[in-house]
Design a binder for these strands. Structure first.
Lengths: 116, 116
DNA sequence: TCTCTATATAGCTATTTACCTATTTACGAT
DNA sequence: ATCGTAAATAGGTAAATAGCTATATAGAGA
């Protein structure tokens, strides 16, 4: 399995995305990460393992705590991959934009038919 | 399941990313998409279904063909999610950069110890 | 209507995933 | 030494996923 695969599939789970969001505010212990979720500690530890294998978090050691911190570097690759498609969605946003403008122009011309 | 979940998990598979890359060059029939892979037609159809549920492709109808075309719009959401972390990886790239520069400076100062 | 081709669907298997509870390990502190 | 707490690991289950072959459907053209 490749790096990009692991990154995207790590991001596919909302719990894991929430964990990353939390870590964006600073490092946390496992129990701190468990707290906001209605999930068991081992389940969170497992999610952390997935994130770790994707290279998205790294672990320290401080007494009996294993602080987790964000490592965003692998997101660069994902961003680059998606970025290659930017022109396509911008195109379609332009089309949407054009469509909306067109509709608004029509609304003006036939103002009497306006709803509401 | 939410949209972003479906988008990221669609992107987690290299076959599906390759299909999207192919579609970036223009629409294609299912058989055209099967050809480059060592996978059966039903397997590709299934991948297309995943992409379709993620909103990443849409299907037409032309005679007995069901042309597949790229719909990049949902990638915008994924890009935006990842984009929120850009500052973190740029930070770490800066650190890497600083590290490299530092090493190079040391190399210069102790030029005689250079290896190779 | 019969046939050919494109694609979808059915039904199967093996693997992976997400969760759980119970237990173990690793420290720190008393 | 033992107690308490943080986190990992073991071991289990149910559901999802990725693949296959075989078959069904839909439309074009003879």
């Amino acid at each position: 399995m490749e790096q990009l695969d692991r990154v995207f599939s790590a991001l596919a789970d909302p719990t894991r995305r929430a964990i990353l969001a939390r870590l964006a505010e600073g490092e946390a212990t496992v129990n701190e990460l468990v707290e906001p979720f209605d999930l068991s500690q081992p389940t969170i530890s497992q999610h952390l393992k997935v994130l770790e294998h994707a290279g998205l978090v790294s672990r320290g050691r401080a007494a009996q705590f294993r602080p987790v911190r964000l490592n965003a570097a692998p997101l660069a690759g994902a961003a680059r991959w998606i970025g290659d498609y930017r022109r396509f969605w911008e195109e379609s946003l332009d089309q949407l934009d054009a469509y909306v403008k067109n509709m608004q122009a029509k609304e003006k011309r036939h103002g009497s038919k306006r709803k509401r």
